[in-house]
Design a protein around this nucleic acid. Structure first.
Lengths: 352, 352
DNA sequence: GTGAAAGCGCTAACAA
DNA sequence: TTGTTAGCGCTTTCAC
């Protein structure tokens, strides 16, 4: 009775569950090792056997168990990407670039979201040690306070490639855009168009990206010998409503700025909303240049000049180096180098 | 002092690639099974031993090997989500909703992108059989031509929950928004605002979502007894440039439409661009309602009325049901049911 | 050209 | 309460 019950379960399992190499081997009267070799196109297996094996595998839709293979091989053919904000369009484009290269080389990609939180980032990184990924592409969660978890990962021979918010105190390949130069170009645009009072809108985190952009803003003023007051560099938090309120106040003032460089998309939009809301007709008198990747900058009126990062290219460049290195196994990923990919500045003038 | 001891142990293992349960067991003079049980907080292990084990594990930053565990347990504590377009903002919000619930329950999430391509989707699904995920949340790649791969997955006891572009011929839980109703409301808005000649802009795929929106458009006209000509239902491909050209032509005509319902964000934007480009001053005479999740609709002029899907909620609802079912192991995921979460219609009027 | 057997790291049934 | 052992599915020596 008990036996029948078990037999029944076994049969049910046999049809319903997964096909393994062992099942194939039994059906074909071969050893599992032979089947494995045949499926991996080993040269020591006869063409005839290979054909038999592959045919049956296809017919039964055999899929190798990723975990068994990963355990045995000690690698996963998977790379991980850690971004600070999964919903952000910029990072999505980077991810798409990475994924495209991965797919082309038979790698899988797992996306992790650090929510701009170092604690979360650490959790992700240490979890990665479970062998889930062979390598990591990442943009830091926030200000670079802690790096032990990154060094730890590298010591475990899991290479890291950094992009955008790169680490300063960890060696490795770093892919960035020309943030300072781009901010410089954007600011010069404002100044050359006649802006007399420009402001820089930055997020209050001390991210390397924000710093670079601020430097570019200052650099342009210095070069054109235009004095900058303290009130020209503004810092904002993450609360959009509050930010907009501050900006509205700014634009209501009589000595309001006539040129704005926004170092983040959300700040550019907040500035734009604040301008739109000012009842006195200032919008057209204030030029805005914003770092952004949004697809609708050309639809706004007055138009928003933009600095767009080459996100997709950034991602595919990272992945290309990574996978190449993973394959030849000779690459030294701790080599410190920086690759700069230029942003695209688009000036848009009001038609009115 | 104790700490120093642990640090010493750490150094001793520093060159070894990874810490395993076996390493811990040796250091502690315990069996691997004891260590395993201690780490999993088994009740049959003494508190003292537990403490010793957990302390060392922490000090060495032990991380269990995900592949070994997955292989042994035959489950991965991971769920997969398959979306047609990873870069699309709507799907990103859904993903965020799913991820939030997953994290809260200790599940990992892997995102797969089908690129709106059924062949790609099949590849993903069959690859999933490798045991990488315990369950799947998905929105179909395209028109529902093929479903064997989905049924296959279900037969392998991997539950699927559908959302947005749901399957008609596969049983299961289906989470959707009220597309027909939302389109109906949007269209009625246009008609009540006095539009005499309305057009529906849809993508030419036959997705269930597009169909429902089209139905809503027609329903509103029928209800208000306003006749619809053939030329009122327009279908577009995926080439934005070409779409915009077609729309420009449309708006240049003397008998141009004065109301537009766009069933996809990209079409709404193309229509908007086309309107902005027409030299004759038509923009303000044409009202546009678009399905969209973009964050800047309020910045446009003339304003764009929008129908936004509750993407995050959709995602978290799917994940909640899924994980609950995975946990109690009693849920029948082949039960056919539909959960409708309402969209949000926002009417925006021109201030001019 | 093919088979037998070991072992990747983990958990659980069974022993003690 | 702890130890011994088997085995998840796969690849890879080492035999033959």
């Amino acid at each position: 009775m008990h036996i029948y019950h078990l037999a029944y379960l076994y049969d049910a399992r046999a049809d319903m569950s997964e096909i393994t190499i062992k099942h194939l081997a039994e059906k074909l009267n071969l050893a599992t090792s032979t089947v494995s070799r045949a499926l991996n196109d080993s040269h020591e297996i006869s063409d005839k056997t290979k054909k038999r094996v592959i045919e049956l595998a296809k017919a039964l839709n055999f899929q190798p168990n990723a975990y068994a293979r990963g355990l045995r091989e000690q690698k996963s053919k998977t790379i991980g990407i850690i971004v600070p904000d999964r919903v952000n369009h910029f990072f999505n484009l980077v991810i798409e670039g990475v994924e495209t290269v991965c797919r082309a080389h038979g790698y899988s990609l797992i996306v992790y979201n650090s929510y701009e939180d170092v604690a979360q980032e650490k959790k992700i990184v240490y979890g990665l040690l479970g062998g889930k990924v062979d390598a990591v592409v990442m943009s830091l969660a926030d200000e670079e306070k802690e790096v032990e978890h990154l060094k730890w990962l590298q010591e475990r021979n899991i290479p890291i490639i950094f992009f955008d918010r790169i680490a300063q105190n960890v060696k490795g390949s770093k892919y960035v855009t020309n943030d300072q130069e781009a901010a410089y170009i954007g600011t010069k645009h404002l100044l050359e168009k006649g802006c007399k009072k420009t402001v820089f809108l930055g997020l209050s985190n001390t991210s390397i990206v924000g710093m670079a952009r601020k430097k570019g803003f200052i650099q342009a003023h210095e070069e054109l010998e235009i004095p900058l007051s303290n009130s020209s560099i503004l810092e904002f938090g993450h609360d959009d409503v509050q930010n907009q309120a501050i900006l509205e106040k700014l634009f209501y003032k009589l000595d309001r700025p006539d040129g704005v460089l926004a170092a983040a998309e959300k700040l550019g939009l907040s500035a734009y909303r604040a301008l739109a809301k000012t009842k006195i007709k200032v919008p057209n008198q204030v030029k805005v240049v914003s770092f952004t990747n949004m697809q609708v900058a050309d639809l706004l009126n007055p138009p928003l000049s933009t600095i767009a990062q080459p996100a997709f290219d950034l991602g595919s460049a990272c992945a290309t180096e990574l996978i190449k290195g993973l394959k030849d196994k000779k690459t030294d990923f701790s080599l410190d180098k920086k690759i700069i990919i230029p942003s695209v500045f688009t000036a848009r003038e009001s038609s009115q």
